[in-house]
Design a protein around this nucleic acid. Structure first.
Length: 261
DNA sequence: ATGCCCAGGACGCCTGGA
């Protein structure tokens, strides 16, 4: 069972590329982030056409997450972590969606970026990570095969970035962000990509600017965390890097994990 | 030392991203 995550940076702008990727790699489940559309604008029929069924949690212009599954509808289990955005009165941002597919709990997240730091956006990121940890502890207690995946906006270690110097002041690799991520692993979650690539050097994001893709100036911020019951079934994990190089590409590449059936 | 490039929307400039 292949489970994937892809920050698509706008579902309307990315639809042809996204359908191409689904048809070519055919994941059983794909978690999407930054769909950047309100619920009523979500192109559900486009997925039905190629055999995928979707659930989604959108908002106007920014953020937004969706889960699509091959040949069956994901069964929604939770929407949102219950935390308001950093702006006064804006309510909760669309960043978290949880569903069951084939007995596996799928938790799709788009963690706040946190820049600039320090400041209210960074505080929001850390508060969000605290709530996420609480939710993930509940998930561990349930002892169901569970995958928590998405755009974590955290560079876990120095080996996960092309140049430490270039990113040292960024919210993605501040000690507080890294410590919060490390606490998740300490609770018993397995970072699938890191486990299979312990020397690092695996990127999931390349900036549109300054020829980052051409120079391979990337970093790893999209992660797949497995509960013990899922980690027992880990077969392979990887990055569909090639898709970052296509026309009208997202600035992220898809990441995936294969679990034994 | 800064900006480079994108997407979306209020639209010919702004926010937000990372």
């Amino acid at each position: 069972m292949k489970i994937a995550s892809f920050n698509i940076n706008g579902i309307k702008a990315r639809l042809p590329r996204l359908k191409e990727w689904l048809e070519e790699t055919r994941p059983a489940v794909a978690c999407l982030q930054e769909i950047k559309t309100q619920d009523e604008g979500f192109p559900a029929a486009e997925f039905e056409e190629i055999g995928y069924h979707a659930i989604w949690h959108g908002q106007k212009a920014f953020n937004g997450v969706a889960i699509v599954a091959d040949g069956q509808a994901p069964v929604e289990m939770k929407r949102g972590l219950g935390i308001d955005g950093p702006k006064e009165g804006e309510g909760e941002q669309a960043r978290y969606l949880e569903a069951d597919v084939n007995g596996v709990r799928i938790c799709n997240l788009y963690l706040p970026n946190g820049n600039p730091q320090p400041g209210p956006k960074f505080d929001y990121k850390l508060a969000w990570m605290k709530l996420l940890r609480e939710r993930m502890l509940e998930l561990l207690a349930a002892e169901q095969p569970t995958v928590v995946l998405g755009d974590f906006n955290v560079i876990p270690e120095d080996k996960d970035v092309y140049a430490v110097k270039a990113m040292e002041d960024d919210a993605l690799m501040q000690p507080e962000s890294r410590d919060a991520y490390k606490r998740l692993l300490g609770d018993g979650w397995t970072d699938a990509i890191d486990t299979l690539n312990p020397r690092g050097g695996v990127w999931t994001y390349w900036d549109y600017q300054a020829g980052a893709w051409q120079k391979d100036h990337g970093f790893r911020i999209d992660h797949l965390l497995l509960s013990p019951q899922a980690a027992d079934r880990l077969v392979a994990a990887g990055v569909d890097k090639e898709y970052r190089g296509r026309e009208k590409a997202s600035d992220h590449a898809p990441v995936w994990v294969e679990l034994r059936d």
